[in-house]
């Protein structure tokens, strides 16, 4: 069987981290796992079935052919790279990308199509589902083939607060892979020779190209919330728009940024771009220092992947206390300025 995976590239031409997740979900060759994938966190896989032939993993990539990250793709188990170069389709056009996936599915006789559940991946798979009339299972953690055109899935619901066990009956199976799940590191795939590259020239209609993105340069330019190594969080406990100065100073000293809770953005104390959580940004720092934040599950949905969480809170019984690794009990308006002073003294 062949599994087709949409691979997104970063600005520098490397494989986007989320797409590596997608590839590991798609990797037909990965060893069949047993047990409960979501709880014991082995790598997510689509095994080719007990007696199935060894599978092929094809990657759909939009980008210049001479700059494809073939090493990374081969290392991720990809056997075939289907490249759509800019002269055939330049830039992002969601329905056109979905059309390409539909064409490649037919050409490779793919039994499953996978994309990382990024904004683009989710959107393209929604279009693929819409133009083919097939269901799309979003935010999957694992997908086991349980029969012809049958998949046993585990997927996230409520932004990862719940898991759903489900059966998908569809051929091909259309899946998006959860990008923020705490799955542990995906197991290394079997070594793969450099993948074969196929150029694909899509047959696009006007309707496929009706919606196209025009990209505008990077805004802000500073450290981004999503990729910051240190995030200093501020919630209702900060007290108001003027209470953030010490947090911002601390973030500056640690080379990080300030993130906030929804209370802070809905009060208009800080813009929504700074919100961490289910409907804000998902962060993955080494350290999340959560100040005056109660730790509501919708907030934790955005910071649960932080390596270490330290809470500063007046309430020793706040829910964040059972999600943080360390805590300081007390008033952040006293503790944070004292911490800033101590760090400055250290030099």
């Amino acid at each position: 069987m062949t599994v087709l995976c949409l691979v997104e590239l970063d600005a520098g031409g490397t494989v986007a981290a989320a797409s590596l997740r997608g590839l590991s979900l798609a990797r037909a060759h990965a060893s069949a796992t047993t047990g409960d994938p979501a709880d014991s966190a082995p790598p997510p896989t689509i095994p080719s079935g007990p007696s199935g032939p060894s599978g092929q993993l094809a990657a759909a990539v939009f980008g210049a052919v001479d700059q494809l990250p073939l090493g990374t793709l081969g290392g991720a188990g990809v056997s075939d790279v289907c490249a759509v170069p800019p002269q055939y389709l330049d830039g992002y056009a969601p329905r056109a990308w979905a059309r390409v996936l539909a064409e490649l599915t037919a050409r490779h006789n793919a039994t499953a199509v996978v994309a990382a559940a990024t904004d683009r991946g989710s959107e393209v798979m929604a279009w693929l589902g819409a133009i083919t009339g097939k269901p799309v299972a979003a935010n999957c953690l694992s997908a086991q083939r349980s029969g012809d055109g049958m998949y046993q899935l585990v997927r996230q619901r409520w932004a990862g607060l719940l898991l759903e066990d489900a059966i998908l009956e569809s051929s091909p199976a259309l899946l998006t892979a959860a990008t923020d799940a705490d799955l542990g590191e995906p197991a290394a795939p079997p070594p793969m020779a450099e993948p074969a590259v196929h150029l694909h020239r899509p047959g696009l209609t006007e309707a496929d190209l009706a919606v196209r993105a025009t990209e505008t340069a990077d805004e802000g330019g500073g450290v981004s919330l999503a990729t910051a190594r240190v995030v200093v969080g501020g919630g209702r406990g900060v007290g108001g728009p003027d209470g953030f100065a010490p947090l911002e100073e601390l973030a500056g000293l640690l080379g990080g940024v300030v993130g906030v809770s929804r209370v802070v953005t809905s009060q208009g104390w800080r813009p929504h771009t700074m919100q961490v959580g289910q409907t804000g940004t998902k962060i993955t720092p080494e350290l999340y220092l959560a100040c005056g934040i109660s730790g509501a599950i919708q907030h934790m949905a955005g910071c649960g992947s932080a390596k270490h969480i330290v809470a500063v809170n007046t309430d020793p019984a706040a829910p964040i206390m059972s999600r943080a690794d360390y805590a300081v009990i007390g008033d952040l308006a006293e503790i944070i300025p004292a911490l800033v002073a101590a760090l400055k003294e250290r030099g």
Binding site: A137, I167, L168
Partner: peptide, 10 residues
Amino acid sequence: GLRKTGLRVP
């Protein structure tokens, strides 16, 4: 085509 069989808390 997608049928839920159950929900659980991770």
